[in-house]
Design a protein around this nucleic acid. Structure first.
Lengths: 188, 188
DNA sequence: GCCTTTCCGATGCAACTGCAATGTCACCGG
DNA sequence: CCGGTGACATTGCAGTTGCATCGGAAAGGC
């Protein structure tokens, strides 16, 4: 067998470059050549690993999902044995919010993909699964009285906080105090 | 003076076409020629009324803001003399949510612009003013105990519900019951 | 040493982009 | 009635886009 290369690694390398471009120039600035130069490789190589641009986008989207999932599980893991439901939720949500300059980039990419999938419904099914899963989990952790409505509301609050953080309308402290206030209401 | 034309009307006509294109193909499909054909005019005319593409985008964004503001005031006006704070808030927020197929288009455009301004901070200042204004108003209407945190939380909840509605994660009923549940908590 | 298979850089192409320049026509004040 | 001014349409241009194609390089099995 000839030259062997770790395909997955190459693909994530390219996806990383894509996310870098998307984070500070927007998704519409993502082109084969742009991503290639951002990754420090030739445009031909990008084509070698992604036969079409849509394939590249889809992969990058999957990377974004995966990353945020990892962020959540890591944050929760740092919480010890069995934390209180409220602390658990707060940590999970805080882990998903674009609070510092670094996670803001990821948030920008996620927002861009949100607008992207709003127009291409084919790619949205994965996101639907994710939120369904999250709502189910949150609903299980919330105090008994609250129905699914409280879970969907909490998730929506998170999303909205994220969007407003990215837009610069809210500061990190504002977002966190708003989150805590909401949790006060839910657990009060 | 030669032929006189209502500039403002022509510009909104073009902006309407832009929003139509953006609503079902995304903002990155917005080009001078696309918008022109969608508006049924020549590309030259678009250039006549907007010297640059950015100027056209900025105008369309202002139209979006204006429209949603009108929608809110209309919905509130249909409420009679002095409605209860809770009903007032519910109507305002419901008026801003992409609940039916028609307002979904506007929502998609708004979401696209959100991602757009997240990358071009220059255009975001107007949005910042809008949300600041809204939070101030909401904070004034909420029960006394609640601070600004409750207002920012409610606004974030609205934004998140809108995003999830556009993504197809929530149905209109789910969104509304989540909103009502949150209002229950706030006014409980 | 060779040969096969994978890798990947280079080039080309048709379509598209924003924008400028140029042109044509309608209108209206004088 | 006529000259000029604003309202458009057309065309051209340089740059970019996604994608297909070709060619060589590299590396392991025989």
């Amino acid at each position: 067998m000839p030259k062997k290369v770790d395909h997955q690694q190459r693909r994530t390398l390219i996806a990383d470059a894509l996310m870098r471009v998307a984070a500070d120039q927007g998704l519409e600035a993502v082109s084969l050549r742009h991503v290639a130069t951002a990754a420090g490789v030739s445009a031909g190589m990008v084509q070698h690993y992604f036969r079409t641009k849509d394939e590249m986008m889809a992969f990058a989207l999957s990377v974004v999902r995966e990353r945020s999932q990892i962020r959540v599980t890591e944050a929760v893991a740092g919480l010890g044995e069995n934390p209180s439901p409220r602390l658990l939720l707060r940590t999970m949500i805080a882990a998903l919010l674009p609070l510092d300059e670094h996670t803001r980039d990821d948030g920008r990419v996620a927002l861009a993909f949100l607008a992207y999938t709003a127009v291409r419904p084919s790619a949205a099914s994965r996101l639907r699964e994710d939120t369904a899963q999250l709502t189910a989990f949150i609903a299980g952790v919330l105090p008994d009285g609250r129905g699914d409505a409280a879970a969907t509301g909490l998730l929506a609050l998170m999303e909205g906080l994220g969007v407003h953080l990215l837009g610069g309308q809210y500061t990190a402290e504002q977002a966190l105090t708003a989150l805590d206030a909401h949790l006060d209401l839910l657990f009060g």
